[in-house]
Nucleic acid binder design. Sequence first.
DNA 1: AGCCAGGACGGAT
DNA 2: ATCCGTCCTGGC
Length: 315
Amino acid sequence: MQKLKKCNTLALETNEPFNFKFSVWKPSHFPTRLESLAGDSLYRTIRLGSGDAVGLKLTALEKKPGIKVDVYSKKPLDNCQLADLEKRLRWSYGLDESVVEFYEKYGCDTVLKNSIEKLYGMRNSCAENLFEILCIALVLQNTNVKRSQTMLENLLKNFGEELHFDGQALYAFFTPASILKSDEAQLKAECRVGYRAKYLLSIAGAFNNGFNNVDFTKLNYDDAKNQLIEIKGVGDYSASIALSSYLKDYSHVIIDSWSQKIFSKVLNKNFKSRDNVVNALKKRWDKYAGLAVLYVIENLYFTGKVNQRGLVEQS
DNA sequence: AGCCAGGACGGAT
DNA sequence: ATCCGTCCTGGC
């Protein structure tokens, strides 16, 4: 366990409109001890490029749209580390993006209108790196949310790094190296991940072996995806999720069996395949389809209209 | 008491 | 190319 103290503060400004809460916290994400929403603050952990884990306390900037970041670490970060962290967080929380054009185009769309009003100023966000997203996608495979949550919890307890700061007890994500110190039998027995154990090892192996040196932001979508699919345990769905989250590309829509059900209900159509859903969404929202999906889903979760089976309740 | 869930793989067609 | 059985586990 690491005790961290507040060493640095960053002020990250952005453009209007900006919704702090829904930009740093997403209702649809199952709770993990990677982050915690407490009052007006969002605490979370993050690994710097160096691999060092830090704790963050995010609050809304006063007077200006943006995020105030208190950085908790063992010792103060140097200017280079701070610059990297600032760049990373601006990217993670979409601070250099804008939702204005999206609102202008689709603010009156009958399906989006309500979601945009409720979540006004929300940006897409993803604080995890590629390795971390792929691990989350892995525990989502072939199971229900509750069990995904348990699996990730077990993995964090066994292989994550416990961080204590500002009264919070959170975990930094486990690293490829920490997973590789384990083996299939231990992962199954202690983390209850079943057949996913060998896939977790292969993902960790890939990221311990050069994938960290690949700059996926410099590859085109298809090339990047083909590289990810080479990893055993990463299929089309996981690779797409990872890339769209990581590259923040809203023109790609990823539909799984859960969002297929949701959009069948929302658009009042009985979609027979995921491709049918994707085509309908692209036709309706074009290059903003990914963002539109985010708004619809987050609003349904926030208003409690999605049940445990991923179905939209009648309203 | 089974059945099946927010995919991926490998082998068969 | 597309289809299908199988993979762990524990909620429901």
